[in-house]
């Protein structure tokens, strides 16, 4: 964590890393980063506060505190991960802790788009496959090689066919996941569209 954090940029197609498992459904963004840590005007200091309440409650036994999980970058989760608040601070905190990709049963909508927007691909796998990985991780370390192009994750003795939204996959492979410049390419269409909206002239000077 002492190394200065560099956010991902450009296109990428492979993520290799050690897995960390976090068992539980409906893990909300308040748990990922409690609201008191949102009192900041940048994201820089969030990494150390990820899961702060849960970690304090478990007194060193939370997966994010275990020595064995040090250096992990692929997070394995269950269903509806990231539900609740839209705070981008949640994936920002995970990313600054070291997470580069997430594999889970399912994700909440806003959390998912926040992850894509900052360069964390989220993949889904059936419940049984997630269980298999989590059981494996109970016994030993697991290093996965994720191939975004083929949508696979494999190791010497395991192989999974990952699901990812086609739009997200294309964005990472093309490097267009940092959306602002892509959106601004259509600036003339945007200007045309906004002038066509019936309501923009309903009460122009109210504010």
């Amino acid at each position: 964590m002492s190394i200065k954090f560099k956010p991902p940029i450009g296109k990428f197609s492979r993520i290799n890393g050690k897995c960390i498992s976090l068992v539980g459904d409906d893990i909300d963004t308040d748990r990922i980063i409690p609201a008191r840590f949102l009192k900041c005007i940048d994201f820089d200091s969030l990494g150390k506060s990820v899961f702060d309440d849960d970690r304090k409650t478990l007194k060193g036994n939370h997966p994010f505190d275990l020595e064995i999980n040090k250096g992990s970058s692929i997070l394995i989760v269950n269903s509806n991960f990231g539900c609740g608040s839209s705070r981008e601070h949640a994936p920002q905190a995970l990313m600054r802790w070291g997470i580069k990709a997430i594999i889970g049963e399912s994700f909440a909508d806003i959390f998912y788009s926040n992850c894509i927007a900052i360069g964390i691909p989220c993949f889904t796998l059936p419940k049984e496959s997630i269980k298999k990985i989590q059981q494996y991780l109970d016994i030993k370390n697991l290093f996965l090689e994720i191939d975004l192009f083929k949508s696979t994750a494999k190791t010497e003795d395991l192989k999974f066919n990952l699901e990812i939204k086609e739009t997200s996959k294309k964005m990472f492979l093309s490097g267009e996941w940092d959306a602002t410049s892509t959106l601004l390419e259509n600036v003339s269409l945007i200007e045309k569209k906004i002038n066509e909206l019936p309501y923009v002239n309903f009460n122009k000077d109210c504010l």
Binding site: S86, E88, I110, A117, T167, A179, T180, V187
Partner: peptide, 21 residues
């Protein structure tokens, strides 16, 4: 009407649009 994250707030400020399915 829907919630967005900070990167999308940036996109709306910059372009008044977002990318969404």
């Amino acid at each position: 009407a829907f919630g967005i994250g900070t990167s999308q707030v940036r996109d709306v400020l910059a372009s008044q649009t977002i990318a969404m399915n």
